[in-house]
Write a protein that binds this DNA or RNA. Structure first.
Lengths: 147, 147
DNA sequence: GTGATACTTGACCAATCCGGTCAGTTTAAT
DNA sequence: ATTAAACTGACCGGATTGGTCAAGTATCAC
C-alpha cells in the first residue's frame, strides 16, 4: 500500500473541511472555498478541484455552487478512517497479483498479503477526527512553548 | 511498501537455490542453472538473469561461469528476511515525501510512516528459511492427502 | 439582468517507473 | 574447438501518476 499524492491531498482537504465544521451556526456554516484550501496547503489548484470532486463522489463532502459557494464536510470526522480515504483515492489494497499456480509463489503471496494487511489495519485505526486532534494538540503545545 | 515483480521473482529464485543447498556433497554442490529456475517458476529468461546478477551484488549468491556453471546460495537462508530481499530489489521503504512544513501534512506523514513500518516489521519477521519450511510442509500435506 | 465568483466536466499531457528484451562477450568443461 | 552457460549494458513500450486546460454552469451581489 503506497500513499499517492492524491490520497495525501485528499486527507489535507478533508482535514481543512473538518476544522471548519465546528463553527456551525455561523453564516458560512462550515463552508470553505477551494481557494482557501489550496492556499493553506499549497495544493495545485486544478488538481485540488479534481480531488474535491472525488470526495463528493465518496459522499463525504457537498458543494455549494455560485458566488459565496464552497465545500462542506457532511459526515462525522470520526466515521472516516485514513484507510477509507486512501482507498477512495485509488490506493488499491490488493496489489498486483502474481502467478499462484506454483506453490512457492503462492506461499510468498500470502506473506505479501499479510504485510499489506498490517499496514491497512494501522490506517483503519486512525480516523480523520484523530488527526484533527493531534494537530490541535501539537498546535497547542507549540503555542505554550512560545508564550 | 509495494512488492514489485522484481522482488517476487528474487524471492522465488533464492527459494529455488535454497532448496538445492541442502544437497551439499553431491557433485553439483548446490549449483543450479538459470534455465532450471526459469522453467520451474516461469520467470522470463533475460529478466531472471538480470535479477540473479543483483542477487550476486547483494552477496547472497555466487555464480560459476562456463558450461556446467550455475548459481549457488552462499548464505544461511535463516539470515535473510523477506524485507531484505524486497528492499534489495528496489522496494523503497521510504515512500515519496510530501511537504512537511505544514503541521497537518506533517502529522499525516507520521501516520503513513507508521503504517509502512508495520508492513516492514512483518516482512522482517519472515526469513527465507521460513518460506522453505512452509513450502515443504504444504507439499507434505498435499502428498499425505493424495496417498 | 449583469457581472463576478466559484464549482463542473472531460479531455489532455508530460515525466517517470517498471517489466521485460536484446546483441554481443566472456568463461569453463568436454 | 565446440558448446553451454553466465555477463554486460543498452534499450524499449506501456502503464501509472501528478498535474493542466478550456469551456461551461450555477448562484449571489448589485
Amino acid at each position: 500500500m503506497v500513499i499517492s499524492a492524491r490520497a495525501h491531498y485528499s486527507c489535507l482537504a478533508l482535514l481543512e473541511l473538518a476544522r471548519h465544521i465546528d463553527q456551525e451556526g455561523t453564516a458560512s456554516d462550515g463552508l470553505v472555498a477551494a481557494g482557501e484550501i489550496r492556499e493553506r496547503h499549497e495544493i495545485p489548484g486544478p488538481f485540488l478541484s479534481q480531488i474535491l470532486r472525488s470526495l463528493i463522489a465518496s459522499g463525504w463532502v457537498e458543494s455549494i455552487r455560485g458566488s459565496q459557494g464552497g465545500y462542506r464536510l457532511v459526515v462525522d470526522p470520526q466515521s472516516i478512517s485514513l484507510l477509507d480515504i486512501a482507498e477512495a483515492a485509488g490506493c488499491h489494497p490488493s496489489q498486483k497479483r502474481f502467478d499462484e499456480t506454483n506453490l512457492a509463489s503462492q506461499v510468498l503471496c500470502e506473506t505479501w498479503a499479510n504485510a499489506a494487511e498490517c499496514a491497512r489495519a494501522e490506517l483503519q485505526r486512525v480516523t480523520l477526527a484523530d488527526i484533527v486532534n493531534r494537530c490541535s494538540e501539537s498546535e497547542h503545545a507549540r503555542l505554550m512553548f512560545y508564550i
